[in-house]
Design a protein around this nucleic acid. Sequence first.
RNA 1: GCCCUCGUAGCUCAGUCGGAUAGAGCACAGGAUUCCUAAUCCUGGGGCCGCAGGUUCGAAUCCUGCCGGGGGCACCA
Length: 556
Amino acid sequence: MKATLTGIITEALHSVAADGLLQESDITVPFIELTRDRKFGDYATNVAMVLASHINGNPRQFAQALADRILETDNGENIDKVEIAGPGFINITMSGDYWVKAVRRVLTEGSRYADSNTGQGKRVQVEFVSANPTGPLHVGHGRGAAMGDALANVLEAAGFDVQREYYINDAGNQIENLGQSVYARYLELFGNQVDFPEGGYQGDYIKEIADDLKATLGDRHLHKSHDSVVQEISEYASHRILADIKEDLEQFGVRFDRWFSEKSLFDGNEVKQALEEMESRGHIYREDDAVWFRSTRMDDDKDRVVIKADGSLTYFASDVAYHRNKFNRGFERVINIWGADHHGYVDRMKAAVVALGKQKEDLQILLVQFVNLLRHGKPVAMSTRAGEFVTLREVREEVGRDAARFIFLTRKADSKLDFDLDLAKERSNDNPVFYVQYAHARICSIIRNAEQTGISLPEPEDADLAMLVLPEEKELIRHLAALPDVVDGAALALEPHRLTNYLRDISTTLHNYYYHHRVLTDDADLTTARLALVTAVRIAVRKALTLLGVTAPERM
RNA sequence: GCCCUCGUAGCUCAGUCGGAUAGAGCACAGGAUUCCUAAUCCUGGGGCCGCAGGUUCGAAUCCUGCCGGGGGCACCA
């Protein structure tokens, strides 16, 4: 809806420029915001002040001239009133007709409401979770999963062509380490005394895998050579863990378009090709028997080794190959969601992307901060090393998928998150998930009651929406009209948490309205209008919840 | 030591491209239900936006320095 206003103001600016008050070339897209205080009207723009340095005379005078043109341009169609305030704000009050159209649009567009073409079909890849298949997903991965999935949804709604990908680190030493760990536990099951590998995986799940190995294969592995056994067990264990990860993510409502294997990069010789490309572009040198990437040229702290002195490749080398592969697949933008512990990796990865001929901005890296789990108000101790951690599965089974996803998305990625397990389970207004879902269920309940008494949901054009004159109704409509901007903003800023804030706000407004006014009244026309309004609110709430990957229950 | 990041109400946090009197939830205090779900609503107190400079008509927001929390600094994965 704001687009209408943007168009009007832009046209008015050109008109003012034609009068000689402004250079045509100084015109930019005007910034318009929904006012936070109704006494400033519905929308406000600061263009007059922004352009202050380009005009003769003071901003207020310029604002007045522009205000006149705005009214002229609109010709009474959408705008009621334009006022100049403060240092040169232009406050605009929209007409009742404008708001009627806003509601009607929600009803007409339904689940497509708030979708936009901002992304213009640009191909974007979102890579997230990508946990090593060496252990179960923990809570931190859950936050990354919720974040990546919601972000992908939001980008899709904003008109981007999105692909969701999980990168499987199935080629490194950690897989071997996993195999060694399982092998050690396996030997123990046959009474053999073994030294558990240093830095091996400690969790109970390792013993479970060893148990299963014994159950299915008996002592077969006891008699093979150490190396071949470890390789076999590594593969078995990592496949099994990956299957569990996939199962977890599915239960969590997160799906991927592609599971990309690191090993495939080696099999396809792509790591070597990537390094050759970097070399041909002049970013590689040799020193101390190792091969280096001159990443300092691209703002990194220090140069990075890609081939070690012993001839083996670094983990970073395959990451370079992976990112080269991504861009070769035609993605214009690549977004990685990493745990905050990968912080130190950002600069070198961006350097690599630049070295491969892309722009620094083509790769965006979102660092997701740690989750601080609380039980009875106290932090739950976690240590991945010692195998003491709360898994995503445990949290999901305890608090439910909706609560977990919603809470993970209440904060922006780079701030730490307190996750109160007790609160997440609570069925009270303290629990934001229930609060929002209840708003949706409440509307559904009203609609059910209406249908039971023979009132059917109105068609958008049948309701006389001009009857919605209460301040609370106007507030609801303003929230409805804001959703497209919230979705676009969340997509462009990569901040899905804006939607959780939005949901809380519109839910508060709905609960307030519900408490003070009845939807189903004795006045048939008024009832129809109010039913149309709450139906529109239901559409908006459901849309926002869906983008976050949270269900919108019809009854609770 | 160097780099990144955060610092906003007692607590947890929003704050859109730099705008008008900085917002919300929790907690605390008080109140609301003959009627569509009380999993709800209303009212209230609460602030040196870490500190100091700078840029600007205007700074929580941008720049510099300092203080404090967190993270990162491998020929580890």
